[in-house]
Amino acid sequence: MTDTEKLDPRVHPYREDLAASYLRGRVDAARFIDGVPCQIRSGFAAVKAEPSFEAGQTTELLFGETFTVLDERDGWAWGQNGTDGYVGWVRVEALDADITLPTHKVSALRTFLLPEPDLKQPFVDVLSLGARVVVTAEQGEWRQVDGGGWLHARHLAPVAITAADFVAVAEQFAGTPYLWGGRTSIGIDCSGLVQVALLAAGHHCPRDSDQQAAIIGTLVSGDGKGVTYQRGDLVFFPGHVGIMTDAATLLHANAFHMQVVAEPLADVLARAGAKGITAIRRL
């Protein structure tokens, strides 16, 4: 007897032909394997629903995140993200089998990886907030990272340092274009904004809004009625989530404005119509 039907395939790597070893006895699959732990070695990498450039993006992986590879096909690797458990396909060239223990993380909204400690050099990659690196050398205000390249020290923080206010982190993304599955300041979606901000503040956070609505903080209300909103309240709608910056303003990445904006919650509710608030959760 298995509980395959009950397991969310977004965060449980199983198919009819293959599944992760830790799911043995819980799902039916022709083969179970441990997989090969790898690490992301590009600024960010798209995770796809299928092994194809034309397939939809489900999320993104950031530099330094781990990814356990369970299958490879035509230059694509199928596996699971170590940060939030998300499952999907990523290009193999974004992966490195040599796992390193990060010493620092990117604390700026984004930063440029340069080939030399010289700001006039052309950049070789773009790393986003939350990317994790190993600092191997110092030269003035520059820090060399494992694998090659230099980052400015002002854009880095030790991995143990967490942001004091996750809302302030999220507010930095104002104006960022909306991108389905995005997790960077190049493009981000509603739940990606919440996840990146909470992770920066040291809080575990799943990837999608329905997952977040199920576990983050404490449920304050199921419909928003009679609530006195506070800064940091997470407001959930069907398939959507935003962050209250004060008692009346919602910050969210949305497809109406096609970017991250802060606007009156009342305006969002007016557009939502019958699709109103489904949950309010507070850390």
Rank of each mutant, 00 (worst) to 15 (best):
T2S: 11
T2Q: 10
D8L: 08
R15F: 09
E16M: 05
D17F: 07
R24T: 08
R31V: 10
I33W: 00
Q39N: 04
I40M: 07
R41Q: 10
S42Q: 15
A45L: 15
A45I: 13
E50A: 14
E50D: 09
E54F: 07
A55H: 01
L61S: 03
E65Q: 15
R73C: 11
D74G: 03
G75R: 00
W76R: 02
A77N: 01
W78C: 02
W78P: 08
Q80H: 01
G82M: 10
G82R: 09
G82Q: 11
T83P: 00
G85P: 10
D96S: 13
A97M: 07
H104E: 12
S107Q: 13
F112P: 00
L114T: 04
P117G: 03
L119A: 10
P122S: 07
S128F: 15
S128R: 01
L129V: 02
R132T: 12
V133W: 10
V135F: 05
V135W: 11
V135P: 06
E138C: 02
V145Y: 08
G149F: 12
G149M: 13
G149E: 13
W150I: 01
T162E: 15
A163C: 06
D165S: 03
V167Y: 08
V169I: 14
V169G: 00
V169E: 12
A170S: 08
Q172H: 07
G187C: 04
I188R: 00
S191Q: 10
S191D: 09
L193M: 02
A200F: 08
R207E: 13
R207N: 09
I215S: 12
G217S: 09
G217K: 10
D223S: 10
G224P: 11
K225H: 11
V235E: 05
V241A: 03
G242V: 08
T245V: 15
D246T: 08
L250I: 12
H252T: 06
M258T: 04
V260Y: 05
A262L: 04
V268E: 05
A270H: 08
A270I: 02
G276L: 13
I277V: 15
A279D: 11
R282S: 04
R282H: 03
L283W: 09
